[in-house]
Design a protein around this nucleic acid. Structure first.
Lengths: 156, 156
DNA sequence: CTCGGTGCAAAAGTTTTGCAATATG
DNA sequence: CATATTGCAAAACTTTTGCACCGAG
């Protein structure tokens, strides 16, 4: 985990930015909640535990900076408000999401299934793919199970 | 085009809603700008030409209603503000997008390439896919050509 | 008459910005 | 000292909501 911070520090310095305590606290929050897709307000609340004086604007500015450098991804699931996710080192592309429309759960798929498609786009459209985003909306295993249970009761 | 309105009218009536002049004007704007991915404000401006008294809130309410009924898609490309797109009749799933990060152009791919993946998700995750979204970010043919041209000049 | 739909204005929520103060090298 | 960065508050922007009113059935 600290090696992550070190790596990111190098990326920042590389571009002429500093890893301030505020930025580090923000990063650590993202690192500790990697699977949670926090929104800006949530990041802010959690960062305040580590660095109580921080302002919301600073968190926004940090997240903006980090997402410009492709260190975090800024995603938008359609509820009003972006969500933020650390990119893992070995994951050059955005990962995919399974979004449950019943309970709101977001599951991640870390595999990259899209290389063949990207090649095809390159060929057919002359479009150079730099990144992609793939989300599936539907009903997760748990909600599906609950639903079937209810149906059974209704029948019996 | 009028057959589209007729079909949508039936879909609305089916669910107990009316095709009011305001809703029809909104639909016609989307129909006439099918490839443009308008945001709410832009839809509002264009609808005002057809129905000057309409209020912005009504446009929002119409777009919300139509997207709940899956007649339009509400998409979020990351600029603050949703964009709206009519779904075509023969296109049950969201189409895919090629988004140029240089010039902002959005090209559509109408093919559905994801069925095999959806089957796999169903099998591996027990997740019932109802809809999906696939966007590629990168550099479009035109911007790529411009860039190569510049590079040539730089060399010569 | 009833009720869904509308227009307007106000409110809510998210994100950005101006600016003076601060920290850092 | 020069400059990037921060905190705060105000502003900007998108979207939602409350409410009185209108209009079709």
């Amino acid at each position: 985990m600290d090696e992550n911070i070190g790596r990111i520090n190098r990326q920042l310095l590389n571009k002429g930015y500093k890893l301030t305590p505020q930025r580090e606290a923000t990063l650590r929050v993202l690192l500790e909640n990697e699977r949670d897709h926090l929104n800006a307000e949530e990041v802010f609340m959690l960062v305040k535990d580590k660095y109580p004086n921080i302002g919301l604007a600073t968190v926004y500015r940090s997240l903006e900076l980090l997402s410009e450098l492709h260190i975090v991804e800024k995603i938008n699931f359609g509820d009003g408000g972006a969500r933020f996710d650390l990119r893992s080192e070995d994951q050059p592309h955005m990962h995919h999401h399974l979004i449950c429309t019943r309970c709101g759960a977001v599951e991640e798929i870390k595999d990259d299934w899209l290389m063949p498609m990207e090649n095809r786009i390159e060929r057919e459209f002359g479009f150079t793919v730099l990144d992609h985003r793939l989300d599936f909306q539907g009903i997760c295993k748990e909600c599906g199970a609950k639903e079937r249970e209810k149906d059974c009761k209704a029948v019996s």
